[in-house]
Simulated scan of single mutants.
Amino acid sequence: MEIITSILAGVLFATAIYNILQKQLLRIVIGTALLSHGAHILILTMGRLKTGQPPVLTEGISDYTDPLPQALILTSIVISFGVTSLLLVLAYRTTKENNTDNMEQLRGNENE
């Protein structure tokens, strides 16, 4: 199971890098969102996937799931939601002000 989630994280990282390197502003925002999702899956995989185990240690239980990766992912989800919404608002305002979402035109390289 950990191999499959590692491959999924790699695919998410690859598509995120591809989208971040595009010229359209919306694709860059989608790339950053995919990058954060890949990081979430990677953190979850590094915490070892154990199904059917309780996350808290009580009497009589010797094998348990570590709750720290889940807490880190929950915090990261909230932060990435905030960053993604900020980037969407900035992309919307930039597109409205400049009438384009092409990064080359926004940089002033109109010849390319």
Rank of each mutant, 00 (worst) to 15 (best):
N98Q: 13
L49S: 08
L35S: 11
V11N: 00
Y92D: 06
V89T: 04
S62H: 05
M1W: 05
M46Y: 14
V78F: 12
N19W: 01
L106S: 03
S36N: 15
L72C: 08
N109R: 06
I43W: 10
L12Q: 05
F81K: 02
R48A: 14
G47L: 12
G52R: 01
S6K: 10
E97G: 01
S62R: 04
G47R: 07
L35A: 10
L44F: 14
A71M: 09
E104W: 06
E59D: 10
M103L: 15
I28C: 06
R93K: 09
D66P: 03
Q105T: 09
E110N: 09
L72A: 12
L74V: 05
N109M: 02
F13P: 00
S80G: 03
H40E: 13
L26G: 12
S80C: 00
T45L: 06
R93Y: 08
L74M: 07
R93C: 01
I3H: 10
S62D: 08
L90C: 06
I3T: 14
V78N: 01
H37V: 15
T58I: 13
P54W: 06
R27G: 11
T75H: 04
F13L: 11
G31R: 07
G52Q: 03
Y18R: 07
G82V: 06
V56T: 13
H40D: 12
T58G: 01
N98P: 01
Y92I: 08
L88F: 10
N98G: 01
S36K: 07
I61F: 12
Y92N: 06
F81D: 02
I17W: 02
Y64T: 14
T58H: 03
L49C: 02
M46H: 11
L35W: 09
L8V: 13
T100A: 11
P69H: 05
I4W: 10
E59F: 10
I30V: 15
R107G: 02
Y18D: 01
V78E: 01
A91T: 11
I30W: 07
T95Y: 08
T94Y: 03
H40G: 06
I17T: 06
M103Y: 15
L49F: 14
L42K: 04
P67G: 06
L57R: 11
T32C: 12
G82D: 02
M46W: 13
T95C: 01
P54I: 07
V89Y: 08
A39V: 15
L44E: 05
T5A: 08
N111R: 06
V78Q: 02
L26W: 15
S62F: 08
R93W: 06
T5W: 14
Q53P: 00
E97M: 12
S36F: 13
I3V: 14
I79M: 11
I43G: 04
A9D: 03
L88E: 00
R93P: 00
L88W: 03
T5S: 14
T15G: 04
G38I: 05
G31K: 07
M46K: 10
T5H: 09
I28Q: 14
L72E: 07
L12C: 11
G60E: 05
G60Y: 05
M1H: 08
F81A: 13
R27T: 07
G31L: 08
A14M: 12
I77T: 08
N99H: 13
E104I: 04
N19R: 02
A91L: 05
K50L: 13
L12D: 02
G38H: 07
L57F: 09
L34H: 05
G60M: 02
L26H: 13
I73L: 01
A71Q: 04
I61Q: 09
Q24M: 04
I20T: 10
